[in-house]
Structure formats: C-alpha cells, structure tokens
C-alpha cells in the first residue's frame, strides 16, 4: 500500500464519513431552519420542469444502481442465477438511460442557473462546489457506463471496486483492490467522498427529507400551542 493509496482510498473515505455523520448531527441540531430544498421554482418554472425531473429521476436511478452494484456481492447474483453477461447487459442499458437523463437534467439545471439572473442571485458558493463535484462524478460515471460498458468491451468492477467499497464498511480496508482499476474508475470512486464531506453543509441535506410519512397520514393536522402534532 503506497502512501497515496492509503490517503486516497482509506484516509479520505473515513474522514469523509466522519464529517458526513458529525456534520448531519450538527446541522440537524443547529440549523433546522436552513434544512430545505431551497426551491427556485417560484422564480423560473419551464426549464426546471425538465431539468429537475430528468436530474432527480436519473440520479435516483443511478444511486439505486450503485447500491446494487457495490453492496451486493457478485456471488449473490450468480447464486440466484443471473449470469455475468445478463447482469452486465442490464447494468449497461439501465445505467446508460439513467446516466443520460441525469446529465441532461444536470446541464439544464446548471444552464438555467447561469442564464437567469434571478436564479444566479440565489446561488451560493456551496452550491458551486456541489455542482462542480457532481459534474465530475456524473461525467466520469457516464464514461464508465457508456465508454467502457456499452461501447467498449466492459470492465467488471464488482470484484475490485465493489469489494474495496465493502471492505471500508467492514473496517478492513483493502485499497490495493481499487488501485488496480482503470484510472477513470479510481477517480469516479474518489470524488464522491468529497461530495459526502460537503453534503451536510449544503442544500443536499434535502435528500434525506423525502416525506414518505405523508403516505397514509391524516390530511388535517392539529397542534396545541407550542405542542406536538396530533390528529
């Protein structure tokens, strides 16, 4: 394990996770008032319709794909009878669709932010950092999915990147696994840690607030003064 490997593939992930967890606790305790999607739909709605929907549905699908690809070991999909070829085909196809939707939406969102002075004025430096990192992640991911897997011969990342990722979770990091992967994969696996580190301090906290409790909730809520919600 070289020093760079240790820094990039062990130290960075762990510091990032620490910041991620501590940051969220701090933010939730001290800044509930700032915890919002910071919607700009009031200021502009037409571009947002395409941008936000394409980006979010694309990104959520891509995130779902990552969960399957990174957390579920190869042996498991084999065991239930999915061949590497079938898995690869599905991942490449679904990944391409999701990735293209995501990047199209992202371009629209960023273009909109740059084009409309009203929205440019609402953009913070944290937003800029988030957009830069997101842009890097999405572009690299697309190069992998389309460049390697759809057009190219394919690279099976599951025994290398996947195992490295899970090794971090088991607290037995094996950085040498990812050090052998193509550079694009190494970069794509490194950038997200920066995203996680800024996540709790950015607007991205809104992602945790997906209000699923709304399903099945009684419509009208009553509260006593200074009290809690009741039926």
């Amino acid at each position: 394990m070289t020093v760079e490997e240790a820094l990039l593939f062990v130290a960075l992930p762990y510091s990032s996770i620490t910041l991620f967890v501590a940051g969220h606790i701090w933010r939730y305790r001290h800044d509930k008032f700032g915890w919002t999607s910071r919607s700009t739909q009031l200021l502009e709605r037409r571009w947002l319709a395409w941008g936000s929907n394409l980006f979010h549905y694309g990104a959520l699908a891509a995130i779902g794909g990552h969960v399957v690809g990174l957390l579920i070991p190869e042996q498991l999909t084999h065991a239930v009878g999915i061949s590497e070829g079938a898995y690869h085909l599905f991942a490449a196809a679904a990944g391409t669709v999701a990735g293209l939707a995501c990047i199209a939406g992202f371009v629209i969102l960023v273009g909109r932010r740059a084009y409309f002075p009203r929205i440019r004025r609402t953009t913070t430096w944290t937003d800029v950092v988030v957009y830069l990192v997101l842009a890097g992640i999405i572009v690299l991911g697309l190069i992998e999915t389309i460049g390697f897997n759809t057009l190219g011969t394919g690279y099976n990342y599951r025994p290398t990147v996947g195992v490295w990722f899970r090794s971090l979770l088991w607290l037995h990091p094996e950085p040498q696994l990812i050090a052998g992967a193509p550079l694009v994969y190494q970069l794509h696996a490194t950038l997200p840690w920066i995203l996680y580190a800024v996540w709790p301090f950015s607007r991205l906290v809104h992602a945790w607030s997906l209000p699923w409790q709304y399903l099945g909730r009684p419509y009208i809520l009553y509260r006593r003064r200074y009290g809690l919600a009741r039926r």
């Binding site: 509930k32 915890w35 709304y214 009208i220 809520l221 009553y222 006593r224 919600a229």
Partner: peptide, 21 residues
Amino acid sequence: GAMYKREEDGIVLVDQEKCRG
C-alpha cells in the same frame, strides 16, 4: 407535516423548522 391548525384558536401556521420547501 409542517403546517397545522391550532386546537385552541384555529389559527393555521407553518412550522419553520419542519418546512422543507
């Protein structure tokens, strides 16, 4: 669930800490 009606006087308010925009 950030908005509510007060039981005592019926005033409808937005809880600024629970609103997520």
